[in-house]
Nucleic acid binder design. Sequence first.
DNA 1: TATTTTTGTTTATTTTATAAACTTGTTTAC
DNA 2: GTAAACAAGTTTATAAAATAAACAAAAATA
Lengths: 93, 93
Amino acid sequence: MFEPLDPLLHNQLRLQIMSLLIGIENAEFGFLLDETGSTRGNLSVQLNKLKEAGYIEIEKGYKGNYPNTKCSISALGRNAFSTYFEALKSYKP
Amino acid sequence: MFEPLDPLLHNQLRLQIMSLLIGIENAEFGFLLDETGSTRGNLSVQLNKLKEAGYIEIEKGYKGNYPNTKCSISALGRNAFSTYFEALKSYKP
DNA sequence: TATTTTTGTTTATTTTATAAACTTGTTTAC
DNA sequence: GTAAACAAGTTTATAAAATAAACAAAAATA
């Protein structure tokens, strides 16, 4: 009847992150911070959860002299994201 | 950019409850229990949260000799539910 | 060189979800 | 008629999650 909703995606910030990443090659930490309006701490935690799940990849490098983190969605993540919205349909009136 | 997702509805069980109630006059506790596959405890807690928010009404009566609880969605709830799905669109690719 | 900025991470607190235990009353079996 | 099992929930306790606050390390700036 009701399709289960991936708990990892069923969170506003993580869903925002995935939504941003899906349409883009990769995104910097700062960009995600701006677009989501989140705090650094929360963003850091949630990015790592998505990474642990294999939904995104995180590349740590430098931009000029400053540390810089680039995130990109994985095939697994892309799939989970689409499955999530598919599942949501089963809750619709 | 991203529409906020009503935290009360952004929970699998509560969303199931609302989804069931929206297409029906009212539903008994036992029916909701069956359809959602939830435990009694969790169902009880989440129904009360929805009631506190004014999203549903709860009528306690009897069915034969046994206590019996009937739930129905309110106008506010109906509205919140539709707003929730509207908001979700802003997360879609 | 002291202070402020940048870019994050880690830890601590609060909130939430869930499950386990309890309550009240009703049947049914002995 | 009383003990055991069942029904329908509620309450409380535990586990998990989300979020915010504090911290860190290096860089820029005054």
